[in-house]
């Protein structure tokens, strides 16, 4: 088991995707944070500000999908499966090690990206109101954004596992990664919003669960701040759910776990 973890850690660490994607995602998230702060200083509407804030979490999810897919897809794409199995001839160990390390790496990526967005937002807001900080609007401080770090990490973990399953199950690696990123960043909020709209009972249940979690001292930190729970409704009337919200994360986690099981079975039989 130790050998499997060591091997996977070395393998993930030597991937360019592991090194580059989180950095790129953090940079993009920081830029979106700066944009949100400038929108606040410019007196933009709450809709625009919320849009920038919510967009700042998407790079974490995209990076997590890419890392997860690279953890398994590169192995298939470049014929490294035999190398892996020759070095560690225990598929179960490798599956556990791969899933665990991918989830941890994606969670870390989510944290880094969310912190990067927060840092960009805070620095830009401080720079915009450098003369008199008392002019910062109420609720526009960085504190609510900081509260979104933990939800971003949870969503990134689910996205990473989803990417791992995509790499195992799909044949066309690059195409499938692009599709998976689009699904997580765009399709999932829309699907979650449509699900909540079409199934009010599910929406009510999630709302009660969220409220219960917010009342819990520790678990409340894992939820999105209320300011980030609402995605501006689309012109079509559809109300997307933020990808880091409880509903979207739960939906993504369910899909990812199902794919993980299917991919692991396929990996075991290959």
């Amino acid at each position: 088991m130790i050998a499997a973890f060591r091997y996977e850690m070395r393998r993930l660490g030597s991937l360019r995707a592991t090194r580059r994607v989180p950095g790129v995602a953090a940079a993009v998230a920081a830029g979106l944070g700066v944009a949100a702060a400038l929108a606040v200083s410019a007196g933009a509407s709450e809709r625009v500000v919320a849009l920038f804030r919510l967009a700042g979490t998407l790079p974490a999810l995209g990076a997590a999908v890419v890392i997860g897919a690279a953890a398994s897809g590169h192995e298939r794409h470049h014929g490294m499966r035999y190398v892996t199995l020759a070095v560690v001839p225990r598929r179960t160990w490798l599956t556990v090690a791969k899933t665990t390390l991918t989830a941890l790496l994606c969670a870390l990526t989510g944290v880094v990206v969310a912190l990067s967005a927060t840092l960009g937002y805070a620095l830009a807001l401080a720079w915009a109101y450098a003369g008199d900080r008392t002019l910062i609007p109420d609720g526009a401080a960085a504190d609510p954004v900081l509260q979104g770090v933990a939800p971003a990490a949870a969503a990134a973990t689910a996205a990473g596992v989803f990417g791992l399953a995509v790499g195992w199950l799909t044949r066309w690696y690059r195409t499938s990664v692009v599709v998976a990123v689009a699904v997580v960043g765009v399709g999932l909020p829309l699907a979650a919003g449509r699900l909540l709209t079409g199934l009010p009972a599910v929406g009510d249940g999630l709302a009660r669960a969220e409220q219960s979690l917010r009342d819990t001292p520790v678990l409340s930190a894992l939820l999105n701040p209320r300011v980030l729970t609402a995605w501006p409704p689309l012109r079509s009337g559809l109300h997307p759910i933020p990808p880091t919200s409880l509903a979207a994360t739960a939906l993504l986690a369910i899909v990812a776990l199902a794919g993980l099981v299917a991919g692991a079975v396929k990996w075991q039989r290959s």
Partner: peptide, 26 residues
């Protein structure tokens, strides 16, 4: 084992490729 010489990641360096083996085998 040397079964498939093409089973290498094109982005890894030669040393990094061998480090995979060394990491697992101590």
């Amino acid at each position: 084992l040397a079964l498939n010489p093409d089973a290498v990641h094109p982005g890894r360096t030669v040393q990094a490729h061998l480090q995979l083996y060394s990491a697992a085998g101590g």
